[in-house]
Structures are given as C-alpha cells and as structure tokens.
C-alpha cells in the first residue's frame, strides 16, 4: 500500500466526514418524511445510520494517517455500494412495474433516494481506494 501521506489523509478524512454527515442527514430526512415509521422505515433509517457511523469512525484514523482509517473508508464504500445499489435495483423494479402496468405512474425524481445520491458522491473515492490497495493481496 502506498504510504498514506498526511496531506492525502486530511483530504480523505474530510471526504469521509462529509459522507458520514450526509448519511446521518439522510437518515433524519427519512425519519421526518415518514409518518408510520415502524418497522420497515425504522430499519431503513437504521441502515443509513450504520453507513454513517462506518464513515465517521474512519475520520480520525485518516486524518492522522493511520491504516485503520482506510479500512473504515473501504468498509463504508462497500456498504454505500450495497445499499445504494439496492435502491437502484428497487428503482429499476418500480420502473418495470410501471411498464407492466402494475403501478400508476413512475416518477424518476422520487426514485432517486438519498442512498443513491450519496453513492454517487462516494464513487469518486473508488479510484483512490483502488490505487491505495492495488498491491495488496486478499
């Protein structure tokens, strides 16, 4: 692994911090937007909070240039991909339902959930992570 320079680390730490706050904010928005929270809604809020916590736990390590910071950033990215990917698939499913005539309408805007937006925000990190870990073995 490339030595994680402190400058590099500060930058990545800030990125992780923004993502962590972003997921936390998404959770709050989701909580505010749902009248009947239990339990499906509650779970999806919990999931956003878990992703948020994963990013936030990496911030300190990244800023001081420690390796565990990268671990949490990588873990957070994987969770972002899993959760964001799931929402994308669900949007695709809704669209198919619309095509099949099972759903009244299909509003693209309402399908773009915070998890998808945050995935897009997180994606620029992927090349950086790949570079940092390219020489590592499983």
């Amino acid at each position: 692994m490339d030595k994680l320079s402190v400058k590099n680390g500060k930058w990545l730490g800030a990125y992780a911090f923004i993502l962590g706050i972003g997921y936390c904010a998404a959770a709050i928005v989701e909580a505010a937007g749902k009248p009947d929270i239990f339990p499906g809604g509650l779970l999806s809020i919990g999931v956003l909070l878990v992703v948020s916590a994963t990013y936030l736990m990496g911030v300190k390590g990244l800023i001081s240039g420690r390796r565990d910071g990268i671990s949490f950033l990588m873990g957070g990215l994987l969770l972002s991909v899993a959760v964001g990917g799931l929402y994308l698939l669900m949007a695709g499913a809704d669209w198919l339902m619309y095509l099949l005539g099972e759903a009244e309408d299909f509003a693209l805007l309402s399908e773009i959930s915070p998890a998808i937006i945050l995935l897009v925000i997180a994606l620029p990190l992927v090349p950086t992570m790949r570079r940092l870990t390219s020489k590592m073995a499983w």
Binding site: G46, T54, G75, A82, M136, A137
Partner: peptide, 24 residues
C-alpha cells in the same frame, strides 16, 4: 503482511459496528 482481508475485518468485526453492519 497486511492484507485486504485484515483491513475489512477491522471494520466488519469491529466491536461496535460488527452487529449493526450484519443487520444492515
């Protein structure tokens, strides 16, 4: 040597995050 597996385990087996991540 420090592997990707070690890195991921730092997160997925984390004392506090392990179970929440599993539920996710």
């Amino acid at each position: 040597i420090f592997t990707l597996t070690d890195m991921l385990d730092q997160v997925f087996l984390n004392k506090h995050l392990g179970i929440p991540i599993f539920l996710t």
